[in-house]
């Protein structure tokens, strides 16, 4: 079975959701990259991935998909339970300039950095937050 066949259910789920992902294979690793319409679709793809490789340990797939969100759009804070730190610059070494509560909906200002998005809280605090804890609202 080729890698593409192995992970075809992920590609199929993305296609069904209307996402057109880039699929490439190099040195026995399959790369699925691109943008999906929402955070829910991203979660779905990861669920499918988990059903193929429950421990995510085969080492033959890099699944790098992001939920589409326009700058100026709304994102939900999806931390486990704590507040989300908003920092002066992109990085955990940067001073904290504000916080957003779990499940709070805040505004995405800029995605110029892949991992750290510039956000603005409803109180007008602006700074960088870790993108993995922000879920775009469809």
């Amino acid at each position: 079975m080729t890698l593409k066949e192995k992970y075809q259910p992920i590609i199929d789920a993305a296609t069904q959701a209307g996402a057109n992902l880039q699929v490439t294979e190099q040195n026995d690793v399959l790369y699925i990259q691109g943008e999906v319409p929402s955070g829910a679709v991203k979660d779905k793809l990861w669920e499918v991935y988990g059903s193929i490789d429950p421990t995510f340990s085969a080492g033959d797939l890099v699944l790098d998909v992001n939920a589409a969100v326009a700058e100026g759009g709304k994102v939900r804070v999806i931390t486990k339970q704590s507040n989300l730190n908003i920092r002066k610059g992109p990085g955990t070494d940067q001073p904290i300039v504000g916080k957003a509560a779990k499940d709070e909906i805040i505004t995405l200002v800029s995605k110029s950095n892949d991992q750290w998005w510039l956000v603005r809280t409803n109180d007008g605090e602006e700074g960088y937050s870790y993108a993995a804890y922000l879920e775009p609202l469809a």
């Binding site: 690793v29 421990t55 995510f56 080492g59 890099v62 790098d64 892949d114 991992q115």
Partner: peptide, 20 residues
Amino acid sequence: LPKLMQKVNALKPVKIDNQL
């Protein structure tokens, strides 16, 4: 595990060797 893997996959690695 899936949460960590999502973050790690987003770093654009060549490969992830997960021995967790």
